[in-house]
Design a protein around this nucleic acid. Sequence first.
DNA 1: GTCTATAGTCCGATAGAC
DNA 2: GTCTATCGGACTATAGAC
Lengths: 221, 221
Amino acid sequence: MTVNTIKANKNQAKTNRKKNTKSRIQLKNEQKIINAALKLFSRHGFRGATLDQIAHEASLSKPNLLYYFPSKKALYAVALDHVLTIWLAPLKDLDADGDPKTQLATYIDKKMELSRDYPDASRLFAMEVIEGAKILGPILETKLTRLTKNKKNILAKWSKEGKIKKVDGTHLIFMLWAVTQHYADFEAQIESQTGKTLQNSQFFKTAKNSIKSIIFDGIIP
Amino acid sequence: MTVNTIKANKNQAKTNRKKNTKSRIQLKNEQKIINAALKLFSRHGFRGATLDQIAHEASLSKPNLLYYFPSKKALYAVALDHVLTIWLAPLKDLDADGDPKTQLATYIDKKMELSRDYPDASRLFAMEVIEGAKILGPILETKLTRLTKNKKNILAKWSKEGKIKKVDGTHLIFMLWAVTQHYADFEAQIESQTGKTLQNSQFFKTAKNSIKSIIFDGIIP
DNA sequence: GTCTATAGTCCGATAGAC
DNA sequence: GTCTATCGGACTATAGAC
């Protein structure tokens, strides 16, 4: 719960439960709602998605949805938070003591798996950033900056030791982000051009290998 | 006017002008409106932007805006069409008879200039595709497919002649799209991580050079 | 061509029965 | 906890004066 201290659980007071304890039914409904929110917010943005649509997707009534989350904004923030944790995991795993090529290959593979398995999460993140990152802004400037700073140092160390070429770590990271997320965010365009998505395992493999081949060895002989 | 045969000019009949002729004031207002629409649709999506905001940005009243464009949807379609023309130009210029490295360097440079000079156009395109490309879909499948097919053949030819390495042309094109547009679409994230945007000429230069360096030569020594 | 006023619709949120 | 009904505000689009 990093995005905000949103009182998504204001109703706990009404129950006899201890604080921070939720019934199995509550957890299940909250999860259903978050998944529905992810799906619709990611496709239509904050204002484009409606609570009616989300409630219908979660097989609940609109007032019942608002029983679990106090407002549309609160639900959006929780969905965003849900996304960020998933999304930053691969970068966290980048290990200074590992072999650079192996480490970066693993990063690309993991990120492509996320684009395949959680495309909605990627699109929600993309929508929020394109809209100006009004809610995610503070998080990006603290949590993400700390993480990228750390990883830029690792890339700089590898570069200094001659293990990778002399490259600007910042732009290399941007490039890795851009290329891997592109397959989720621009799925509609990719499907229109190839007739395939990452769900096609052969296409998935070719995409991963093409990216790694170009990033590692370039295209000029 | 490729997106749709939208009757944006239904009012021409009221005037004494010849068909397809508009006064200087009409053209100027239409341009103001399209630019305002680009700005707001690109930031908030179709539903997220309001005609009030767009009219205010264009210094017009809402009914006056609707005098020039018959509906919100029609305005959106015209703005999208406006974007596509700008956006496809650099790829069109890729010349089979030129030197591959020079040709691709020029493409990257031009695309980065577009990301710097027309970030709104890039974001509008991104929004539309993320939302499922409902309006742009038919265009992508015809116009864009024809163009990419042509350019994939050029890349395949270069590869066969040993001028570039053996790479999958489709994924190389996706990679070039992803990396160059990333700087416009994810501007908020990039600014949060670097404190800079492409408006900073030093940053712009470093970004361009980093991309070309990695695409051409890779990062593994 | 441009405005004010408003019709008609949709949406977020609440009230209150069960 | 879940529902039906509804309030109040915001938005697209139109009517009609100038």
